[in-house]
Design a protein around this nucleic acid. Sequence first.
DNA 1: GATCGCATGCCACTCAATGGAATTGCCGCT
DNA 2: AGCGGCAATTCCATTGAGTGGCATGCGATC
Lengths: 273, 273
Amino acid sequence: MTNPPSVSRGRRPAQGDPVIDRAFALLTAFNETRRAMTLAELSRVTDTPPSTTLRLARRLLHLGALERDADGRFVVGLRLWEVASLAPRAHGLRTVALPFMEDLYEATHQHVLFAVLDGMEALLVERLSAREAIDVLYRVGGRLPLHSTGVGLVLLAHAAPDFQEAYLAQPLVHEPEGVPLSSAALRRALAEVRRNGIAVVNRQEPRPLLAAAAPVRGADGDVVAALSVVVPAGHTESRFISPALRATARALSRGLGAPVSAALPPGRFPDRP
Amino acid sequence: MTNPPSVSRGRRPAQGDPVIDRAFALLTAFNETRRAMTLAELSRVTDTPPSTTLRLARRLLHLGALERDADGRFVVGLRLWEVASLAPRAHGLRTVALPFMEDLYEATHQHVLFAVLDGMEALLVERLSAREAIDVLYRVGGRLPLHSTGVGLVLLAHAAPDFQEAYLAQPLVHEPEGVPLSSAALRRALAEVRRNGIAVVNRQEPRPLLAAAAPVRGADGDVVAALSVVVPAGHTESRFISPALRATARALSRGLGAPVSAALPPGRFPDRP
DNA sequence: GATCGCATGCCACTCAATGGAATTGCCGCT
DNA sequence: AGCGGCAATTCCATTGAGTGGCATGCGATC
């Protein structure tokens, strides 16, 4: 009787009744393509009655987690950003990484990416790009597929084995091209990444480009992030990029306190000492 | 000696009973000097019973707003950072500003700062620094006083008049030195900043340095941020910095859609057309 | 000027949040 | 080993904070 399976209308307005979930849903309703929303929009997107939405939004407004733009629409607030700047795996890593990224950037004047693993994707934590550099692929704060990007392959290749299996178990399609990717092929690619120490990806789709990515290790020796350089295909200095990338990633790892023996040959990192 | 348990105690646990306030208090409990906290610590800092703290923290954990580090302590989570990266006044501005900042950085190889106004302080949104650059003053995500920093003076000088008055009305002390600052002196300084188009600050305290800051204007022509270069005092190229800074700030403003007439002489921006 | 959608106020109902008490587990001290 | 002491966690009866339907005012659009 407690669970009348028939009629009785499943009155689940969503799955997240609790207040905090709703408030957070309000925040996550914002989107790369939806950075400012009216109350009605918010209400619709979060599937919450307007009065409730208003009450929540107002509170978040008061806290500075939301703000209103010139048109009175809601946008993500500075206070939220301020708090988020304390996230160790994002801003914390970035702080250490930025100077190293600048070294790479100054040497190559192309895209330099820095990403971490989150869920089944890579989260782009920082990107340096020349203003004249072509095709902006991903934005900072955006997510990248693990199987068709340099940073993604690096992160996946060094992730926990059971995570890798879970990832391999799902159907995979190369991102922009739409070409299916067999798990066997990906498995081979990952092995190659581990063996080689860096990942190299060639893409044609938005524009022919070459991406090289290297693992960054934290204090406990685990891979915590990936550093990458993206250059147009046929870039004259392509050949020089891998060594520079390797060296920088290793210097950065050392900066993060990784037990990096300077004597180890590149690509020969022991995953377990 | 702790708390007189009798006498019914005015039961104001804090001033923010509502759930969201508490959850946010949990997040804002994190600090530059307190980036990781145990449950008990969180409970103490937020003045919330452990059981309640745990419940809230768990929910935030589930949402990804919090994470646990290797030691099981709570830290700010990636998801929060991801959402916050959509804050127009922080990351949004930064995205446009970064390439310009890099130009300045490459020219000077000193500190390049980018800050916005929030509350009674400036919030440092981005900073580029050479690894060998001296004395790191403020961290990204940190707050700077308006009256004793270059970016602060610029933001204050172009803020709403009533805000300026409110700011001037409070007792002011120069930040690191502890020297009092009269409101008349600050008023003069602000006028000078408006007249000159940039703010120049000399400081001795942490180390002798020279900071120059220029206003950055948004699409509606208002000052939305400040761009600054900080160099050691006596830096050989100090003389060349102001022009470069002015030019870059103006280019950035144009990049933000500001109605910047290229013909206008520097420092002669009309606040109202 | 009629209509529609949005933002906001109001308020009785109710369900989710609360926190005290108890339990477990983990040190560090003797 | 044995013993506080503290942190983390579970449980549950109580209750007050959150809810959302309805009504209002406003401004655009037809």
